[in-house]
Simulated assay, not measured.
Amino acid sequence: MIDLHYWPTPNGKKVTILLEECGMPYRIVPVNIQQGDQFKKEFLEMNPNHRMPVMVDTEPKDGGKPIVIFESGAIMMYIAEKAGKFYPQDVRSRYEVNEWLIWQMANQGPKSGECGHFRRVDQKQHGDQTYAITRFTDEVNRLYGVLNNRLHKHRYLAGDQYTIADMICYPWTVNWKFQGQDIEEFPYFKRWFEELGARPAVQKGMAVGSDLSVDVTKLPPEEQARIRKMMYNQRAIPVPA
């Protein structure tokens, strides 16, 4: 059984899409990042980077003790390899998938996250954010262009096969409008986006945990401030005494 320590964000939904596509049984263990579950001692023992998701495979192929993996890209490689699906094992195809997996983790995810962050900032409270908004909105536009140009030449990101490279990128594109983008600017990306969005497993994976998340904007101002301070003003956790 796969235990997925999860909260319904794009990084969590990458993994639930894959689990649904594989038809692999799994159990959701909620990690309420708005309440600080990611900083609890038992979670830090699984992921010292205090970020979800974390996967625990209680029945690994080698028959040994449970395997604990953090970082969504590593989790997806493990699950796909175990299932024997969506991750080709010939060297050329595998590394083509790896390229896009790492591209997503190093580029699309961080830059889209910063774009969303600065576009949400209350400028009355924190001052003019024009430079940051323009910087990251333009960078996200550049990344959509990278996807669009790739998908002009190929049906999927790693070629003609639907793989974890597609699954890892998709959840970060569903909020294209909030990211300040116009999907009509990227017709080849739009074709891919609509094709993936119509897949039943993608729809199921994206819906996982929809009953967990809370609209922060509807919380009292003091609670919103507490969550912002906890999530956006983190500094190093000291080594235990």
Rank of each mutant, 00 (worst) to 15 (best):
148 N>I: 06
205 G>C: 00
85 K>N: 11
60 P>T: 02
78 Y>M: 07
241 A>Y: 03
119 R>W: 04
77 M>A: 08
39 F>H: 15
236 A>I: 13
32 N>A: 03
157 L>H: 05
104 Q>S: 04
75 I>H: 07
25 P>D: 11
69 I>H: 10
228 R>V: 03
189 F>N: 05
62 D>F: 08
149 N>L: 07
29 V>I: 15
147 L>W: 11
92 R>V: 13
145 G>E: 06
125 Q>F: 00
10 P>N: 05
12 G>Q: 03
147 L>H: 10
26 Y>R: 09
7 W>C: 06
154 H>V: 08
154 H>Q: 15
33 I>R: 13
110 P>E: 10
23 G>Q: 12
106 A>M: 09
205 G>F: 07
61 K>F: 03
160 D>H: 13
209 G>N: 01
202 V>G: 09
206 M>Y: 01
125 Q>N: 07
62 D>V: 02
80 A>K: 12
41 K>M: 11
105 M>S: 08
77 M>F: 06
146 V>W: 01
31 V>R: 04
133 I>Q: 08
8 P>K: 06
129 Q>I: 03
199 R>M: 02
218 K>E: 15
188 Y>H: 15
11 N>V: 11
241 A>E: 08
113 G>S: 09
220 P>L: 12
85 K>C: 10
204 K>Q: 13
126 H>R: 11
213 S>E: 14
124 K>E: 12
218 K>F: 04
132 A>W: 04
119 R>A: 11
51 R>Q: 15
68 V>G: 02
106 A>S: 08
235 R>C: 00
134 T>H: 14
36 G>V: 01
149 N>I: 05
65 K>I: 04
29 V>C: 10
83 A>I: 11
62 D>R: 10
164 I>A: 06
176 W>Y: 02
33 I>A: 10
96 E>A: 15
12 G>H: 10
93 S>E: 15
176 W>T: 10
223 E>I: 04
224 Q>L: 10
122 D>H: 03
57 D>C: 03
91 V>C: 12
240 P>C: 01
216 V>T: 11
83 A>C: 06
37 D>E: 03
112 S>A: 09
138 D>W: 05
126 H>S: 13
41 K>N: 12
